[in-house]
Design a protein around this nucleic acid. Structure first.
Lengths: 206, 206
DNA sequence: GCAAATATTGAACCACGATTCAGTTCTTGC
DNA sequence: GCAAGAACTGAATCGTGGTTCAATATTTGC
């Protein structure tokens, strides 16, 4: 059977996007483990075989999905720090954006940060973490360059940026644990404040 | 064939230990992925079937290996902070012990911290991270309780402890990346100093 | 010594999901 | 309309290791 009207029938680019989107939704709902080729195909409304016309194999599909989601996250953080004037504002924005997004999309955050994933996806994950470090390091450099602050620059800026990302991620572990109940907004708010305070001091806030 | 002298023949506990040790070595050399049941059996000098007389299945063997290794690491950190007098000494000790051990046993550290692992092992990994947080939080509480310091206690101590662990782990990612060359001692030393400095400030060092 | 109990073997088995591909349906150019 | 080609199907295949278990070796109790 192969029954689709001309309307529904997709051209190559749209079909590829549809498959990717199906996979993305499955990952957002149940992690990479839930995105089997069969399930992706069902969700995309096509056969398993067709998936292989658009992606070399499952790993490369999942890597593409990860990269796409990672891009989203990076953009959100980039927007958050765009108008920061000091390293503290910068750190505060990162903490807020990162944690709010993680809580709003727990499963996706879990998938991006801690779920065990195939090699190819893990490589994307490490790339994402490096990208975070570079993006935030640039923000710290920029905002510390101004009036009367000790400049944060070069390798030390990257270390500070990684420290920030690590601090947040590590403190998110319990928040993202599916075995534990989803945290209440007040608890999340307290976490944001505590981490922000901690990070400000680390950056040498006056 | 089944040929072992009484001398070589192990009693239950010893044989179990032997299998566990074989698995531990394989993990230390090539990560959990290298510890297939067949390989473990070969290394332990027994058949694959026998592994199942001593462990329910592969996952529980690997979980046991992880737990054992984690215990080692925790003890090392515990010894490191045992005689710290201030939160800064405490943090310094954690950074030094953690990073030195990670560099000395890169593959093991990679396996414990970032290699994608089976569910059962991942649970142990999260347990390890919680244990680190509690151990270090206790150290921070104890050393901050003394003369004239703002006390670090309760949930905030745990957040600070997690921040420390996250800061170190995140900055170890490149160090442990097998694709990258193993870092030179001076670079490691610089990393230790930079992270220590950063963490001291975060803890409100005078 | 010998029978019952226990330890061990390793090849066969199985589970599982990714991957393939021969066949079918649709589209396009003429 | 009708080839020729492109898109698509989905059941069959395959690969990989973990897991089982009937057979064999060894030990133990008497």
């Amino acid at each position: 059977m192969y029954r689709e009207t001309t309307r529904t029938r997709a051209n190559a680019a749209a079909r590829r996007a549809r498959i990717r989107r199906a996979a993305r939704h499955l990952v957002a709902e149940g992690g990479f483990g839930a995105a089997s080729v069969a399930e992706v195909a069902r969700r995309a409304g096509c056969s398993t075989g067709l998936v292989y016309s658009y992606f070399r194999n499952r790993d490369s599909l999942l890597a593409a999905v990860f990269a796409e989601a990672a891009e989203h996250e990076l953009e959100a953080v980039a927007r958050g720090i765009a108008d920061a004037r000091t390293p503290e504002e910068c750190a505060g924005a990162v903490v807020r954006v990162f944690i709010e997004r993680a809580v709003a999309g727990r499963r996706l955050a879990h998938a991006l940060l801690i779920e065990p994933v195939p090699e190819a996806v893990q490589r994307e994950r490490l790339r994402l973490r490096r990208s975070y470090a570079e993006l935030i390091a640039a923000g710290l450099s920029r905002t510390s360059a101004g009036a009367g602050r000790t400049p944060i620059a070069g390798p030390d800026a990257v270390i500070a940026a990684r420290a920030l990302v690590g601090t947040i991620s590590e403190n998110l572990i319990d928040v993202l644990d599916d075995a534990l109940p989803s945290p209440e907004p007040p608890a999340v708010d307290h976490l944001v404040r505590a981490i922000t305070r901690h990070s400000r001091r680390a950056l040498g806030a006056p």
